[in-house]
Amino acid sequence: MRDQTVTFKGGKDGLQVTLDAHVDWPLVAAALTERLDEQRSFFSGARVTLDVGARPMRKDELGSVKAMLERREMSLWMVMSESQTTIDSATALDLRADLISPAPTDAEGLPVGTEDEGTQGIMVRRTLRSGRTLRSQGHVVVYGDVNPGAEIIAVGDIIIWGRLRGNVHAGADGDDSAVVCALDMRPTQLRISGYISIAPPDKRHKPKPEVAFIRNRQIIVEAWR
């Protein structure tokens, strides 16, 4: 069987490089360099999306991967990870970063609920500020605010324990039963499945917990009880 420490996949967005999250970092880094050097001319010029899975990576570790790729005339275009540490490191390096939730088949280390499929997701414990995007194949829980200019796209539900002012899309794969909840619901744009609602500009707004869902082919917002 082929070694799975480093795997490559070509796609329309460039080269996706997936690194095994459970092998020691020095071994992974060495394997990556070796694999790239085997076919150096083939990879030259490629735009790389790096998927490091659950591995928390420091800024200097990520920076050395970036430099290593650049020395081989490749560019690190985006970093995907389940680890907030890695995402923060990528952001600090000015890289595009995507926080992903673990694949549903991955039985290990699920951050939220393991009862059955469909209760999985990610939890973010800080305010999502302008310019950040959060994607999940499951649900998303934010313990903090979602500021204008931030964006959440979830296949499942979105729950904001704070103020929602950015863009959210729940049930993004077409699930009409998905919901969005927030302690203070004032999104720039709210989508559930294929439906869109834009918050009315309302100056006398009183914050209260609300839930949004689809009824009779439109998005309804009700007090959350």
């Binding site: 923060d88 952001t91 600090a92 800080r126 500020r129 302008s130 310019g131 500021n147 204008p148 200019g149």
Partner: peptide, 18 residues
Amino acid sequence: EVSAVRDADRIIGLLEAD
């Protein structure tokens, strides 16, 4: 102004990450 506040928010996010 909304656009200036938006950019300030982005900067604060970067500072927090650092």
